[in-house]
Simulated assay, not measured.
Amino acid sequence: MLIAVTVVISRFFLIPVPMTHGNVNLCDAGIFVAALLLGRKQGAIVGAASGFLLDLISGYSQYMLFSLVVHGLEGFVAGWIGSGKKRSVKILAMVIGTIVMVAGYFLSDTILYGISVGVIGVPTNFIQGILGGVVGYLVVIPLESRLPHLLGS
């Protein structure tokens, strides 16, 4: 369900960035919610599947495999560092997850289009990660106290 929600919110909030052949979206928010609430495995699954599907349906098929890996790693790292931890560690986890995503797309853009496009994409990817982190944090904080109840434990 989190994969579907992440893809939908990412398609709803989608700003194309022509110079990089990519876009700014809220995919990272859904990834951070999954990672911080459910852990590294679920963060990786939501990240990989959401990034892959979003690129497929958004017309960025050249990024599908890159997004599978990049967003999967982002979710894994954020969940590994921040799941079940105090709020300051959750914030650190999202910062490190964002750095992983930015580095991954720098490499992806560089492979696909050259280093100049890789460099141009860094600021917009940081904006996307920060925006995703803020939205994700605002969703995680009220849900984390309700999670045991929602999961039936």
Score class of each variant (00 low, 15 high):
L53F: 15
N25S: 09
G30W: 08
F12D: 00
M64P: 00
V119H: 00
G75S: 06
H21D: 10
V134G: 00
L147T: 02
G97Y: 09
P148W: 06
S153H: 13
G152S: 10
I57D: 13
G39R: 02
K90L: 11
L73V: 07
T124Q: 05
G84C: 10
K86G: 07
S83C: 13
I111F: 15
I127G: 00
I130G: 00
R146D: 14
L26R: 02
L138M: 13
I31E: 01
L107N: 05
S145E: 15
T20G: 06
T20R: 02
L2I: 10
C27S: 07
I91G: 02
S50V: 14
V5G: 06
A35S: 09
H21W: 07
G132V: 05
G129D: 01
G104T: 03
I115N: 06
L138E: 07
Y137W: 10
G152M: 12
L150V: 14
G79K: 06
L54D: 09
A44H: 09
S58A: 15
V135Y: 04
P16S: 14
G129L: 11
Y113Q: 02
S116K: 12
L2G: 11
L147R: 01
S67M: 08
T20V: 09
C27Q: 04
V119W: 08
G51R: 01
I45N: 11
K90Q: 07
K90H: 10
I45V: 15
I31C: 03
T6P: 00
V102L: 04
K86A: 10
V8S: 10
F32L: 05
A49K: 08
L151E: 08
E144L: 15
L138S: 05
P16R: 10
L37M: 08
W80I: 05
V7T: 08
F76Q: 04
V8N: 10
A4V: 15
T6D: 05
P18L: 12
K90F: 06
G22S: 12
P142W: 06
G82D: 02
G59P: 13
V24H: 01
Y137C: 04
L53E: 11
R146I: 14
S88W: 15
L65P: 02
L73D: 05
F12R: 03
C27Y: 02
P123C: 04
F12E: 00
V100Q: 05
A49N: 05
G133V: 01
M64K: 11
I130N: 00
L68H: 03
L56K: 12
Y105E: 06
H21I: 12
A103H: 04
L56H: 11
G82Q: 04
G30V: 13
V95F: 06
H149E: 15
F12H: 06
R87C: 08
S108A: 15
V117N: 00
